[in-house]
Amino acid sequence: MSDKSAIEWTEATWNPTTGCDRVSPGCDNCYALALAKRLKAMGNPKYQNDGDQRTSGPGFGVTTHPDALNIPYSWRRPRVVFVNSMSDLFHARVPIGFIKQVFDVMQDTPHHTYQVLTKRARRLERIADKLDWPSNVWMGVSVESADQYDRIRDLAKVPAAVRFLSCEPLLGPLPDLPLDGIDWVIAGGESGFSARPVDPEWIREIRDQCVAARTPFFFKQWGGIRAKAGGRELDGLTWDEMPDTSRHLRAM
């Protein structure tokens, strides 16, 4: 858990689960996997469970942390909270009972806004009707290339107040992006020593589709060895658009 976050589109992080497994090329240089290895070596008790070395790594085995469920209740000031920056809430090894507990906490703390992001869109879609969806929960899927468009179709079936796409790390063009039912799009290049370069035309194409569809667009970073070194400007502008939540609240 962190009361502050360096991620441009959120304010804090909350990790009721930790650990994950690679499922697509966007996972190849996972920052969370590398960080978990360091946290294990430092003796952090939340990162002592190892994952499968073929798909995960030291300290990155999927683990639930019931004690972390109490953390949002202690935050008096409203926060925008990224849920599970070090895991995936809809991983097959996270019991549905624990997912329901996480959703109960989010419902109990309506002064916070929660951003949940997953690559397991199929499981998300299958169990969505078993969850209560308060208006302060935003649900998103990662879409690093056109091969992941099925995640968008699954997300569109979920009754979240806000549905969003995280096109980061962007690994290829996203033509004909299906934006029906999508309220927000984030895009960005990969960062770190093994960062794969992003083509500026890929970013422009996403931006132009969002403008045409009147979907808010957020450009996070160009990426590279140092994430912030390339800045965030796209054709001389900083794109910091956020979803309009007021229309969802009026509809509910």
Rank of each mutant, 00 (worst) to 15 (best):
I96Q: 14
A128Q: 15
I127F: 10
V158C: 06
D154F: 14
R163H: 08
A160C: 03
K100I: 05
E144W: 00
H111Y: 05
R126C: 13
D150P: 10
P159D: 07
A128I: 07
A128T: 13
F98M: 07
V94Y: 08
D150Q: 01
P134E: 10
S145R: 01
S145G: 09
N136G: 02
G97C: 06
L124E: 10
R153G: 07
V141W: 04
T118L: 09
K130Q: 15
D108P: 08
H111E: 13
W138M: 08
F103R: 04
T113Q: 11
R151A: 06
M106L: 11
V102S: 11
R93T: 09
L155K: 00
R93Q: 13
D150W: 10
K130H: 15
V94N: 08
T109D: 02
I127E: 13
R120K: 11
M106V: 04
P110Q: 13
A146L: 02
T109A: 12
W138S: 12
R122G: 10
M139F: 04
D150Y: 11
K100M: 08
P110A: 13
T113V: 14
A121E: 05
G97D: 12
G97R: 13
G97P: 01
V158W: 02
I96W: 11
V158S: 04
W133D: 11
D108F: 00
T118F: 02
A146P: 00
V162M: 13
H111S: 11
A156E: 11
T118V: 04
L124N: 07
D132E: 14
F98Q: 06
D147M: 02
D104P: 03
R122A: 15
A161D: 05
A128Y: 02
H112W: 06
M139P: 08
A121S: 15
R153Q: 10
T113A: 07
R93I: 04
P110N: 03
F103I: 04
P159Y: 00
W133R: 14
A121D: 14
L117K: 02
I127P: 15
I99A: 12
T109C: 15
K157M: 09
R153A: 09
K100L: 05
T109W: 02
K130C: 14
W138P: 15
R126A: 13
A156R: 10
K100Q: 11
D147R: 01
V137D: 10
I96F: 12
E144R: 05
A146Y: 04
A121Q: 04
V105K: 01
L155C: 03
V94C: 07
Y149S: 12
D104R: 09
S145W: 04
I96R: 13
F98R: 01
A160K: 08
A128S: 15
F98E: 03
F90E: 08
L124T: 12
M139L: 14
H91F: 06
E125S: 15
A146M: 13
Q107F: 05
L117A: 01
V137G: 05
G140D: 07
R120L: 03
V116I: 12
V158K: 00
V137T: 07
I99M: 14
D154C: 14
L124G: 10
I152Q: 00
P159Q: 11
D132R: 14
A156P: 06
V105A: 01
R163A: 02
F90I: 14
V94H: 01
